[in-house]
Amino acid sequence: MTITHDLLVWFSKSFGLFYLIGLSLIVLAYAYWPANQKPFEHAANAILDDDDKPYRG
C-alpha cells in the first residue's frame, strides 16, 4: 500500500511547483494591470486625507 503514500508525496511536490508559478503570475498580473494603477494610487494617498467622518449616503 505504499503506492498511495508515494503518489500523494509526488503530487504534493509537483503540484506545489506549478501552483507556485501560477499564483505568482496571477498576483503579478493583478499588481501591474494598468487599469489598477489609478485605484492603487488613490488608495495609497486617500488615507492621508483628514476628512475624519464616516461617509453617509
Binding site: T4, H5, L8, V9, F11, S12, F15
Partner: peptide, 8 residues
C-alpha cells in the same frame, strides 16, 4: 498539500 500525505 503538505500535511495530507502524512496521514498515510
Amino acid at each position: 498539500v503538505e500535511i495530507a500525505p502524512l496521514f498515510t
